[in-house]
Write a protein that binds this DNA or RNA. Structure first.
Lengths: 344, 344
DNA sequence: CGTGAAAGTGGGAGCGCTCTCACCACCACA
DNA sequence: TGTGGTGGTGAGAGCGCTCCCACTTTCACG
């Protein structure tokens, strides 16, 4: 059965605060204060408690603690995307990494919640509603999941990476100026002399997709160029292949394509190569994101860089600030920067 | 004190079981039974409780529940690897996907715990020690993290994917016969007439790495061939590039390489192409894993396929069985199968 | 010497839930 | 008529923790 260890196992489970207090010769309250780094604990008591904790190998029971504090000290990183995408797009890895780093400094545990839109959404909401976490960071939010509304209704603190679809004034978020970015990327193509410019846009149910397309359109209109050649993808490489194929079929005379993500641009490059179009001589290409792949495509992509790390960091901070104290929802907008390489 | 509001918000928080019970006109105990699908509840009581739950939007407080049940209904998927790797190697995505599916059928929440060996290990152990989860599945376990020992000491139910380094008889695990797989892959090279065969082995601190190397060695010795050309990688593509470069430098006359992972083999193929060696004519290559990349390399890889999904599923089941009931630690070994493509 | 504040402490009341146990009503069977 | 189930129920005792509050001691200051 339970092998009798030195002094801990009194009732089969792990040691309780009560036992620590007894061993340290103080009250439960004092032991609690000492353990939680509370003030008003004499050096002697502190030392006795520390020693008792060490001897017993005590770990506070998180359930008991959060029952009274009403905090769980953990937050969810919610990604309403199929796991294939999450594990493919480097954006998520970077974001998770940064968010975890920032939040663990505040002693918050990050729980990754990946929920394929549709079937797994309900389960995720149930989890959030169950108050398993103190707050959430939502990444890659789509129009269809009314996540922002749900979270706002729940009163669960949250921060979005990318402008939410609803409850815009009730939740915190970070975003980049995707309209400006889309415009700037397109302008690069215009400036180098392209005149028949298409775009492979992002999904029409994500703000980043819509905004970048809007930027493209603005630049095109300002230059007096036609804005017909539009195909939507879903930010994946495969969708870039499909979109580029469709684009070339419908508009064989294109001499430039503004693509809304590097991954899609990489797919587009493969299609162009297969069609024997030289990049950038025959067709110039711009990507978007600059997350690593952009340097390794052939040719390397001229692209817009988003300050992903800074954004994730800021989102984490926005959330953390809401958790301790009652900071009201805020928004922070970052600017993308142009990175010139060889594709345009 | 408690303001008698209409029916929901009585004290600012979410509704409690007490309130549900009152609204349903039953006792707290009956309400609890009804909610937890307990037996011995009359149809009338059940219906009244259901209705009250619906009206109040009641969700049980998980902290209160696990304080008494001593269960958290969640398990950790522990990956002692830097997040770069986790988000790069499709193996993890597949495993996470399957594990989540199987365990969510048993109403268990999966928490992904990625801990870079060394600096983040302690934090992870603290989490596990804190009994935040009922059990763990450990994937990609290295010799240095004495995870198996720690978990066994904690008495935390666990299942390893890949044979653990210690406590082999105290924890459940699934594994494949990597020795046989390594042997079979090497035999393919031998059978096609290769005589100067090297290997790019996996890390020497992972059982899969060691076992596959042992299989290679066994096949080579059985065929009376020399076993000098060995370089270790860490299963990543970059390490494959480095290893292959080193291998070619030391043994320029190689006509076959058994590589311990497809990702590394993909790197090796790039190096060979850069050196102008044709595959398989000049140098034949075998990979290992068959996780998707193998089909898309040039040429496609002849490789050993591990039944990843089945393994993950079995691991999840092994864990689940330990959680309910007291199934003792078991082990399940799967067999890899040869997949012939063009690289050998 | 009185007096107030500050520092340190312990008692005790919960947090919201589950689960044991005693109990009641009802029926079947002897 | 008793006697033993059996389905259904509620009172109440915690689970292990935090935190409020009342208390004691110490010490500086008038």
């Amino acid at each position: 059965m339970t092998t009798g260890t030195d002094r801990s196992e009194s009732h089969g489970g792990s040691p309780t605060l009560e036992e620590v207090a007894k061993l340290a010769g103080v009250s439960r309250a004092t032991a609690s204060r000492a353990i939680n780094g509370g003030t008003k604990v004499s050096a002697r008591a502190q030392q006795a408690v520390d020693e008792a904790v060490r001897r017993l190998g005590y770990t506070p029971n998180p359930a008991a603690r959060s029952l009274v504090t009403r905090r769980t000290d953990s937050v969810a990183l919610v990604v309403p995307e199929p796991d294939e995408r999450v594990f493919t797009d480097p954006f998520f890895a970077r974001t998770l990494h940064v968010v975890t780093r920032v939040l663990s400094e505040r002693d918050l545990q990050v729980v990754l919640l990946i929920a394929r839109p549709g079937d797994e959404e309900e389960r995720m909401l149930r989890y959030l509603r169950g108050r398993h976490v103190d707050g959430t960071i939502v990444v890659s939010h789509h129009r269809s999941d009314s996540l922002a509304d749900h979270l706002a209704a729940l009163g669960l603190p949250c921060a979005f990476v990318g402008r939410p679809w609803s409850a815009v004034d009730r939740v915190s978020y970070v975003d980049t100026d995707n309209v400006a970015g889309g415009r700037e990327a397109t302008q690069v193509l215009i400036d180098r002399g392209c005149r028949r410019i298409g775009t492979i846009a992002g999904p029409a149910d994500m703000s980043a997709g819509i905004d970048r397309l809007e930027g493209w359109r603005a630049a095109m209109i300002a230059a007096g160029l036609p804005t017909e050649a539009i195909v939507h993808g879903d930010f994946t490489e495969e969708s870039g292949v499909a979109a580029c194929t469709a684009l070339l079929a419908a508009h064989p005379d294109l001499d430039g394509i503004a693509v809304a993500s590097d991954l899609m641009a990489s797919g587009a490059l493969r299609v162009l190569a297969a069609h024997g179009r030289r990049v950038p001589t025959d067709v110039a290409i711009t990507g978007y994101d600059d997350l690593g792949i952009a340097e390794h495509t052939d040719p390397p992509l001229t692209t817009m860089r988003n300050p992903i790390a800074e954004m994730a960091e800021e989102a984490a901070r926005l959330l953390a600030d809401q958790l301790d104290g009652t900071a009201s929802p805020r928004r922070v907008i970052f600017a993308p920067t142009l990175v010139r390489r060889r594709s345009a």
